[in-house]
Design a binder for these strands. Sequence first.
DNA 1: GTCTATAAACAGATAGAC
DNA 2: GTCTATCTGTTTATAGAC
Lengths: 227, 227
Amino acid sequence: MNDQDPQKIGGTGASEEESTKNALLQTAIALFSKNGFAATSTREIAKVAKANIGSISYYFGSKEGLRRACARSIAGLIASTASRALPDVDHLEPDEAAKMLENALGGVIRLMLTHHNSRNMAAFLLQEVSEQGEVLDEIYTHLLEPLHKKLCRLWSVATGDPAESQQTIMRVFSVIGQALYFRLGEPLVARRLGWEKIGKKEAEQISEMVLQNMQDMIVAARIRNQN
Amino acid sequence: MNDQDPQKIGGTGASEEESTKNALLQTAIALFSKNGFAATSTREIAKVAKANIGSISYYFGSKEGLRRACARSIAGLIASTASRALPDVDHLEPDEAAKMLENALGGVIRLMLTHHNSRNMAAFLLQEVSEQGEVLDEIYTHLLEPLHKKLCRLWSVATGDPAESQQTIMRVFSVIGQALYFRLGEPLVARRLGWEKIGKKEAEQISEMVLQNMQDMIVAARIRNQN
DNA sequence: GTCTATAAACAGATAGAC
DNA sequence: GTCTATCTGTTTATAGAC
């Protein structure tokens, strides 16, 4: 209806035999994200992906197996993207660390609010978290924890706060939360602001504001640490 | 057949004829919130509520009707609670407005993170927003918009920012977003902080930190407005 | 108002042809 | 690898007894 073709994501040359598998995966991510896992039937996925219903069992074993594959695919892509955006965190000056935090967060916000696949992925992960299924463990261990620790180290260098203190951990979560909310509450946010949808221009405004909030928080933390 | 008296939610005083209806409503909110609308069968609701399956049709017409009733009940309760917490917003000094924002936000965070019904309600509303169903319109018009406008006026008095500017609207959303994220991402947040769950003590810590962030944002906004 | 039985549609999974 | 037909169980909704 509205989502465009579920294309290969970061995908380079998936072999011809796997194109069906990949189409199923991308379609499933899109539909699960949009309508939820339980509300999406395997028949619908197969139909949209232009595959037959049997192929889901063939490639993924079951509907639950398809869900796991979706989660792994997304987590892996985000992790690799993040490790490229935050290559080396050590030996930085406070202002460099702050700048790196800004770049990373700004990039994530713009990507999450505008890029179609990213929107789907964020929605998918959120549902997995709220349903607390089996994949949650994997998401936490392989994706969230290493990424969050890296951000906390950056925050520590930028502000002088200790990197693994409860305060720092919560503070970093609250910055992430600001960004995520604009994706999650998009229908409400857009309407309240008189926007038809959140496009490139609107994402830029949101990004600027969240980054300014973070900057204000960093400045305040530095002042607190001067005492 | 509308849902006034949303006060009786954990309800002791519901009239005898309506106790079945109320049990169905509360059970539905809990199960829809926990497992999602599509993943929850009417059979399960009836069983948990100790009612028979036919009673859902009898009282609410259909499963979709039950969902609408849940949304209305929650929106009504939140709206009435909020209007009690924020009775009069006019003729305030900046520091009074800031204090009122703090009290309201702190109250919401503590309630949302600890009180069982509030947790369910927040989860339910979030799902409705992300699914963009019919009730979304009602939630926006009767709940979010009036409440958000009130908060923006408070923010305006506290900081000097114009009340209905895009900046102010986004800023208030970002504060709400911080609070909501800790509810939404609770499984991840708790694990990262080494907490088993978010209880009263933990909610207090989160509340303090978010309120400090808001205070920092208000101070920074005041400074910007001095130019 | 409450409850049971049942209809009609739909779900996920699979066997087997090609 | 792909596709169809079909099995088995579950879903919502409803008709009708009490």
